[in-house]
Simulated scan of single mutants.
Amino acid sequence: MDLLHNLALGLSVAVSFQNLLYALLGCMVGTLIGVLPGIGPVATIAMLLPITFHLPPTASLIMLAGIYYGAQYGGSTTSILVNLPGEASSVVTCLDGYQMARKGRAGAALSISALGSFFAGTVGTIIIVIFAEPLTRMAQKFGPADYCSLMALGLVAAVVLASGSVIKAIAMVFLGLLFGLVGTDVNTGAQRFTFDVPELSDGIDFAPIAMGLFGIAEIVVNLEKHLERRGGAIKVGSLWPTREEIRRAWPAVIRGTVLGSLLGVLPGGGPTLGAFSAYTLEKKISKNPGEFGKGAVEGVASPEAANNAAAQTSFIPMLTLGIPSNAVMALMVGAMIIQGIQPGPEVMTKKPDLFWGMIVSMW
């Protein structure tokens, strides 16, 4: 009964005209920045934080949350159509989404992405409502050794699942580790491999690397083609997936939703980790792993579901403990502090209208 009472309270807050308007505005802005490469929700929310001074607390947080999970869906559009990830969590969607588009199935890929995102977002919201407290307790049990093991597992999986030369796969893993060394040491504050370039003090961001590997490379390839060969332009075509595509997509969506929901709760997790992990899982359990990278439906459905589910459940430690699980959640904590709200477990009891209103607004 308490749960139903809380949901009724949240619904009454979320469906007010003002909050619906800010939810719409946040989702529209989030989808737009997801489509535009290189901006991302972190920069957008950081720029919009001063606006929250003049907005009611609930409306401002609903708008910022809408920007965050709107960006997770928007990034899939350019990933599928032009092989250009608008958001870091959509990088892996390029691998099979763009290949589906080249085969004339761009519309189906966009539909699968939208439906998978909606399903995962809905499930993620339900998980926040029902399992917020138990999932947060589980995340608290992760210590340094657990995170080190998780990262080691990811590096090993990158080598095991790579196609082609194992030596090249190992070399790329070490190259990635070297890129990760660039920036400011969090313990000593020393500058590592920045070469007196101020922009490198925060490290090498993932988005520019993804842009270089996928976006710029694709632009250069297209520029090399002769003008008379323009007939191969991407066409969206029918938005309806075939029965076979639906049959293959829905189990992948469910697996991606479950995996993304779990990884979203963990500090340092979030949509990007969820999307890559979901893609890795699908390729590992597939009967035809050779199809991945050539237009596999599962390679679109699972990562898109995972990044949306992870975006939703990453609110759990922030709302219940005041602990941000990623950079966007840290900005959300900042927005709450600006409004005079102390993030933590007391938000549920002292500000139930804000807590439950924000959760219901996600749907």
Results as ranks from 00 to 15, higher is better:
V347D: 06
Y147D: 00
P41K: 10
P50M: 01
I219Q: 00
I316L: 01
A71Q: 05
A306W: 09
F214G: 04
E346R: 11
D202Y: 12
G231M: 04
A207H: 06
I323N: 00
G215M: 10
F119D: 02
V166W: 12
D2N: 15
A109Q: 07
L95H: 03
A171T: 15
M1Q: 13
I341N: 00
S79V: 05
Q191S: 15
M63D: 03
H54A: 12
A114F: 07
V173N: 04
G180L: 05
L263G: 11
I216T: 04
W363H: 13
G75H: 04
D205M: 12
D196L: 06
A210V: 09
I337V: 11
A169T: 05
P271M: 01
V166Q: 14
A71E: 12
I62R: 05
S277H: 12
F53V: 14
E228D: 14
V166G: 09
R255C: 02
A152I: 15
M358A: 14
E291D: 12
A311D: 02
G66Q: 00
L7H: 09
T52W: 08
C27P: 05
F142L: 01
F193K: 04
V91C: 10
T122M: 04
V236P: 09
G232K: 11
R192I: 07
V166I: 15
R243F: 10
M151R: 11
E244Q: 13
T184F: 08
L115K: 09
G295S: 14
A88L: 00
S361V: 10
G334A: 08
G30D: 01
V29P: 08
A233P: 07
P41V: 10
A71H: 10
Y73N: 07
V265T: 10
S89T: 12
E282H: 01
A210D: 00
R230S: 02
T78S: 08
S286I: 02
